[in-house]
Design a protein around this nucleic acid. Structure first.
Length: 463
RNA sequence: UCCCCGUUAGCUCAAUGGCAGAGCGUUCGGCUGUUAACCGAAAUGUUGGUAGUUCGAAUCUACCACGGGGAGCCA
């Protein structure tokens, strides 16, 4: 096992003359008269370590196995490199090949591949430059998320993945069952008899940890959940997954203004952390994926987000003099084209839209005194649209109960959610952020399937 | 789920009703402290599947599968 100090990233920073050992996968192999070169990468950083192998150091049999894709351990001396691509290189004195890779069959070649092709070989794409960078950034983002909330005293709560409350209304859910699908038990009326199922009632994969996070917020003040969530929607777009990771903070004694402040601080913190720790990867994305990435991130990390109410946003859109594909009028939800106009043309920065009409938002959002709008906020980012959705929650028992009934929902499943408003209720607020959405923003990757290791989408669950 | 586009060598793509092609990769040879090198040669195909039109289909038609873009749903 490699340990601290033994990764390529560490070795590249060592002084010339160091005696080192290195393990990794051969990216390319080149030969010259009497000398052989192999680029080795272990995933620790963008840069490879160049092995220099003089004729006679290895047997012909071993040397023949040092091909693209092979796994090797090499020992030798770190020397200054006369070549252009690197400052140091490893002058090899010994090398072992763990696993060879048939050059004819190995699908990764030196030249660029399309993302679609690489997605089909997701078991190998993580060895490519692009996906190495993507998943290093994904790791950094995950760590930054925990650091941000931990530094602020938030308690990390593990909300359940399986839920029996079909009450979140955030989208279609995946069923979880142990019933025999060939022979489903029926009640006398012909309905599926879930009393015989594992949980004694219908169960699902969660679409959000928010409602459970609220339970914890009303005990620990500030909490966050961070885990996988599931949507069974038949969404076929570059921005949707059936399984994705979501961060959901929930804060007691907090209103919408505090919620928005936290959301903005949070986004800037994550961006700044990635710029500080993954700059080589971000520079790679800027060079190879999207030339605007680095500039955009530096801009967003330093600029104040714009704030507009939904009503103001509709006013701006109505006066824009555009022929909208979806006409704008107060009460309709903002479409992708509207969000783009606000972020990319009107303000040219992230925009927080607040106080949406209550008809187009969820029942748990706190009603405003105007009787028409709720304390909701969406953070819209240039290029990818909605990146965060949040709200102040309705903390008044009677108002919440009326809202649930108004939306035609059963009160019974919400008994515990309503109970929170009977015992020590308090103004509270929170938001949700899709980790893959912010990764698209950070990397410039165009398809959400390329920022999660093993994407699950309608009709596709390979690997 | 809807609209549009696509599917030809390992990869990226040509060939628009008449002999299946190129570049890259791979293999072999040459040259070279190389960096997505360069020069020469070779191997590589059930043209996504099924059915149809036609003397003849990669090419036209229908259906299906898969992929991409846009939309809806949303994070």
């Amino acid at each position: 096992m490699l340990g601290p100090g033994g990764y390529v990233r560490d070795i590249l920073a060592m002084p010339v003359g160091s005696s080192v050992g290195i393990s990794g996968w051969v990216k390319t192999r080149r030969d010259s008269k009497g000398i052989h070169f192999a680029q080795v990468n272990d995933g620790s950083c963008m840069q490879d370590l160049q092995l220099v192998i003089d004729d006679g150091v290895l047997t012909a049999e071993t040397l023949a196995l040092v091909t693209t894709g092979a796994s090797v351990t090499a020992t030798g001396e770190l020397v200054a490199s006369p070549g252009a691509g690197q400052s140091v290189e490893l002058k090899v004195t010994g090398l072992a090949v763990h696993g060879g890779a048939d050059t004819v069959a190995y699908p990764l070649q030196k030249k660029g591949h399309t993302m679609e092709f690489l997605r089909d070989i997701a078991h190998l794409r993580s060895r490519s430059n692009t996906f190495g960078a993507v998943f290093r950034v994904r790791n950094a983002v995950s760590y930054a998320i925990h650091r941000f909330f931990q530094e602020r005293g938030f308690i990390y709560v593990h909300t359940p993945v399986i839920t029996a409350s079909d009450c979140e209304g955030a989208g279609a859910m995946f069923g979880v069952t142990t019933l025999d699908m060939q022979n489903v038990p029926r009640t006398q009326s012909g309905a599926i008899d879930f009393s015989q199922d594992f949980f004694g009632k219908p169960a699902y994969l969660t679409v959000s940890g928010q409602l459970e996070a609220e339970i914890f917020a009303l005990a620990f003040s500030n909490v966050y959940t961070f885990g996988p969530t599931f949507r069974a929607e038949n969404s076929n777009t570059p921005r949707h997954l059936a399984e994705f990771w979501m961060v959901e903070p929930e804060m007691a004694f907090c209103d919408l203004a505090g919620d928005m402040r936290l959301a903005e601080d949070f986004l800037k913190y994550v961006i700044r952390y990635v710029l500080d720790t993954c700059l080589a990867d971000i520079e790679f994305f800027t060079k190879r994926i999207d030339p605007t990435v680095l500039g955009t991130l530096e801009h967003v990390a330093s600029v104040d987000f714009e704030h507009v109410t939904y009503t103001e946003a509709v006013d701006i859109l109505e006066r824009a003099g555009r022929n909208w594909e979806f006409p704008v009028e107060w009460g309709c939800d903002l479409q992708a084209e509207h969000e783009r106009f606000l972020t990319e043309e009107t303000f040219k920065r992230p925009v927080i839209v607040t106080d949406y009409p209550k008809q187009i938002k969820a029942f748990y959002m706190r009603a405003n005194d105007d009787g028409k709008t709720v304390r909701a906020m969406d953070v819209l980012a240039p290029r990818i649209g909605e990146i965060i959705g949040g709200s102040q929650r309705e903390e008044r028992h009677d108002v919440l109960q009326a809202r649930i009934m108004e939306q035609g929902l059963d009160l019974e499943p919400y008994w515990w959610y309503l109970d929170l408003r009977r015992f020590g209720s308090v103004p509270h607020a929170g938001f949700g952020l899709g980790v893959e959405r912010i990764l698209m923003y950070l990397t410039g990757m165009k398809n959400i399937r390329d920022v999660i290791p093993f994407p699950r989408t309608p009709g596709s669950a390979e690997f």
